[in-house]
């Protein structure tokens, strides 16, 4: 697929290298999708044009199909069990690693956000906040269980405790208005809690979603734990919400009709629906351990306590 070289792309290179001018032809990235730890093109062969505010083409993005989504769910299902069973400490380190990788590519993301219309200041803020958010959730991986667990003092001779466990496979339609922060703020708590995720990136801010997939891919995140597809919410929300092997669904878009359709479809297999459409990712309320517990099931376990002679600790 040939790419149009735009003025904007040249400028980018100038900025990055701090070189005044170059005549060198830029090597442009093909933005693919991210499924099962690999970067395939959409099986449909379709694309949509992502343009900047002046109408210049930024990239031809994959217009993912329901089959791409299906493939992503298969990958996510395969990855979810082993991911949930990893030591929480290990998940913590991997999330931290994602933060490290993003920090290292900070400039690229700032630049992509600017290409998609952000001011330099707000792009820098968004990338910084995204990195910090990953670090925030990295820290939660081995702590939320303690916050949301309980020992339940039942009246019978049983030991009884409740712990959170990952819900499983989570599908998400992410915020349309932010390219990186909205995506990171949804993916991080979901995977911190041991789930796998298929995220549909913002249609109009898709560039850094795929670049973020590259960050994930170089951060020891097992393939299939995070899957990112690009495309149109309008076309995919129905198929995404009817899939019977998805356990939980996040809606962070802004279309009330879509949300309603998703909620109706969710009933087919009693999916949990999380409506994040009103969340301000840019604020303090955009991060909390409760975003982790949203995708946790409480498991309560009982076991008898043997006490033959009525023995007591008597201290």
């Amino acid at each position: 697929m040939a790419k149009t070289v735009t003025k904007k792309n040249v400028k980018v290179l100038e900025n990055i290298n701090g070189v005044a001018k170059t005549n060198r032809l830029l090597v442009l990235k093909t933005y693919k999708i991210y499924i099962g730890g690999k970067f395939p093109r959409t099986e449909s062969g379709r694309y949509y044009e992502l343009k900047d505010s002046s109408g210049n083409l930024l990239a031809n993005m994959c217009l993912s199909s329901r089959k791409d989504y299906r493939n992503a769910v298969v990958a996510a299902r395969g990855a979810s069990g082993p991911w949930a069973e990893r030591a929480a400490f290990n998940r913590s380190q991997i999330l931290y690693r994602i933060g490290e990788m993003l920090e290292g590519r900070r400039a690229q993301f700032v630049d992509e956000l600017m290409q998609m219309g952000s001011s330099k200041l707000s792009a820098e803020q968004e990338v910084d906040l995204s990195i910090d958010r990953l670090i925030y959730y990295a820290g939660w991986c081995d702590k939320y269980t303690q916050i949301f667990s309980s020992i339940n003092p039942v009246a019978s001779a049983h030991f009884n405790f409740s712990v959170p466990e990952a819900t499983g496979v989570v599908a998400a339609i992410t915020s349309e208005s932010t390219g990186l922060l909205g995506l990171v703020s949804i993916i991080a708590p979901v995977i911190a809690g041991g789930n796998s995720i298929i995220a549909l990136a913002s249609e109009t801010h898709a560039l850094c979603a795929i670049s973020f997939a590259e960050v994930i891919n170089s951060s020891d995140v097992p393939g299939g734990v995070v899957n990112i597809i690009t495309g149109k919410e309008d076309e995919l929300h129905k198929h995404m919400s009817t899939h019977m092997d998805v356990n939980s669904f996040i809606y962070a878009g802004s279309n009330a009709e879509h949300l309603k359709t998703i909620q109706v479809n969710a009933a087919d297999n009693v999916k949990r629906i999380l409506d994040y459409s009103k969340v301000e990712w840019n604020s303090e309320e955009g991060q909390s351990p409760y975003f982790i517990s949203d995708h946790q099931e409480t498991k309560t376990t009982w076991h008898p306590i043997e006490n033959i002679g009525g023995s007591s600790s008597k201290y």
């Binding site: 019978s156 049983h158 008898p304 043997e306 033959i308």
Partner: peptide, 8 residues
Amino acid sequence: VDQVGIEE
């Protein structure tokens, strides 16, 4: 033998 079960 499970004592609690026996007692139940």
